[in-house]
Amino acid sequence: MMTLQIHNLTKHFPNAKTPAVNRITFSMQEGEILALVGPSGCGKTTTLRLIAGLERPDSGSIAIHGALVASETVFIPPEKRGVGMVFQDHALFPHLSIFENVAFGLQGRKRAEVQAIVSEMLRLVGLESHARRYPHALSGGERQRVALARALAPRPALVLLDEPFSSLDAGLRLEMREQVRDILKVMRTTAIFVTHDQEEALFMGDRLAVFREGEIEQIGAPEQIFHAPVSRFVAEFMGGSDFLPGLTQPEGIETELGLLTQPAPAAKHVELAVRADDIDFALDAEGNATIAGRFFRGAFHVYRLQLDSGRILHAFKEHTCLMPVGARVRAWVSAGHPLAAFDTQS
């Protein structure tokens, strides 16, 4: 059985021109981590709040473990849904100790049981020694882990994480996301994770749902989203793409960098998404581009190439390979896989 099924979910806030969430449909399997990703204001957080029961949908339905929790006629309040949530600001209760925070969702159970669960959760997040402390005495990363332990303690059917790392600084973020993913996987928790950082989404999600203006633009495995974006929006949002115009021919696509032999798209005028690892180049006085800049990135260099049309493309080279800025080069597509092509008209 699916852990979560969402069908045609729609939420339109009063005074808003367009719906915040517009007819979205997806489902999740037990133990899966789904990352909702998209620019701010695209409806991903609203989707999360609808699932939690913190907002009421206008239409559509949500079912958790096969039981309907929201539809036009049914609305189960958040306290009865058995859904855990990690908030953006962590929302730890400042007047309760770490122990009391984690135990908050365990009311109605025996003392010994509460004690056992809280200790286990705190051990899982590595904060056993902090049980008696208060939230203000913890660091950002520690607060983050308490919030996760608190959300997981009642063993919810589903855990929702709303940009949980946005309040942490960059270094801690990388460390925390590995820890959080490990904990979620150890607990075999079904989780939905909201972020506007595409790299974080690629790392955290078993699947990704890319949101755009309240709709799901594409949903699928990270590799699929990254390598086969369905639209220019997804390709652009997932990052690192330059765009190269092309003209569809019977045998492939004609571009500034020559003819690409790949299955021809339906549209005549297209744009191809090219990443820096799809392009290679060599010094050539008779070439088609000039080196406009070079940036050191540690293991490799990023070269900024200006094609004769004026268009800019980026390309990687090993750090041992140095070519002077201003040199003429010949650039070609070396992807080894078909490039994503989008209709220029749409």
Binding site: A52, P78, E79, R81, M85, D89, A91, F93
Partner: peptide, 13 residues
């Protein structure tokens, strides 16, 4: 803050 109340509700309070 609103999220404190929401967190409490989600934990069944």
């Amino acid at each position: 803050t609103p999220s404190l109340i929401e967190a409490a509700r989600l934990m069944g309070a």
